[in-house]
Design a protein around this nucleic acid. Sequence first.
DNA 1: CTTAAACAATACTTATTTGTATGGTTTCAA
DNA 2: TTGAAACCATACAAATAAGTATTGTTTAAG
Lengths: 170, 170
Amino acid sequence: MNVSASEEYGLRCAVRLASLNPGETLSAPQIAELEGLSVEYVSKFMLYLKKANLVRTFRGINGGFALTRPASEISLKSVFEALTGKNKDSEEFCDQFAGKANTCLRGDSCSIRPFWRILSLYIDEFTRELTLSDLLKTEAETLAKTEAIARKNIDQLKLKVRPSDECSVV
Amino acid sequence: MNVSASEEYGLRCAVRLASLNPGETLSAPQIAELEGLSVEYVSKFMLYLKKANLVRTFRGINGGFALTRPASEISLKSVFEALTGKNKDSEEFCDQFAGKANTCLRGDSCSIRPFWRILSLYIDEFTRELTLSDLLKTEAETLAKTEAIARKNIDQLKLKVRPSDECSVV
DNA sequence: CTTAAACAATACTTATTTGTATGGTTTCAA
DNA sequence: TTGAAACCATACAAATAAGTATTGTTTAAG
């Protein structure tokens, strides 16, 4: 269970943009300076974020980057998906790790999948409900919000995880 | 936020051993067959688990593997640490991703770290409290246990995450 | 006491991720 | 209209992870 460099650094760059006032921009060299990264590396993240339509760009000598929407409307989930190119919903663990057989060899008695599913549902809710603007608040505020998400998770998990959601492959 | 192949496949192999009755063993070829993996790959995971003292081995023509302790006493966390060689507690995100500067350029106003910290504390609790024997139970039972862990998490998180835990580097 | 089948350890190959380099286009200002 | 500074796009190199191969040691059975 690891956070990739793209997720971590890309998120940091996105948060820098989130801290701007309306109309302001930051250039790649500026972000690179702020985050201690190379200009090229920052540019790469900006390209990903732009292609996901989370960031818009201004070219030319006074160019730079800004968010396309208010930070409060950009979920961390959408940022991570943009940075990794992966939509986590689309691939279940069963498909991702199929071994040689290309299909999960475990049948209905698959007892590992529920664990990953529950865990990933938790993570998914956190990243879906937290936005870039949340990462500009105090730690206490972040904690309060995650707590609320966790409580909601508990209530909804019973509905989301059902026996019928077992591995479909034999 | 990704699960590595080693974690997923290695866990599956460990769960196979957890399903054995006392005195029984499984050989690498047997596990490989059950999981659809190569014998060499399974052997690699077994070596890691052995070095972490989670698995003991029996050599020779009728050899095989078995857990050193009851499955209920082996946490998923210890399995993952054995498989990845990483003790997650030891390295904070700040240290893992330091950029060029080798130290986090964000000061006390670091607003990203709390997010990762809270999320990783959740995951950590799940994997610390769930054991290999839990992965042999029904989905409903797993769900009940994760729910209990989540509730406990919420109560304890306020104590664990405090403002004083900010980035220490300037 | 020889051989088959299993574990042990490490080296090796391939794939993916990480991070950099390069050549190009756009824009503004002198 | 020319040049500096920024974005754009892709290619490239280095590091890590994934998975395989190889050589050796152990053990029990014949």
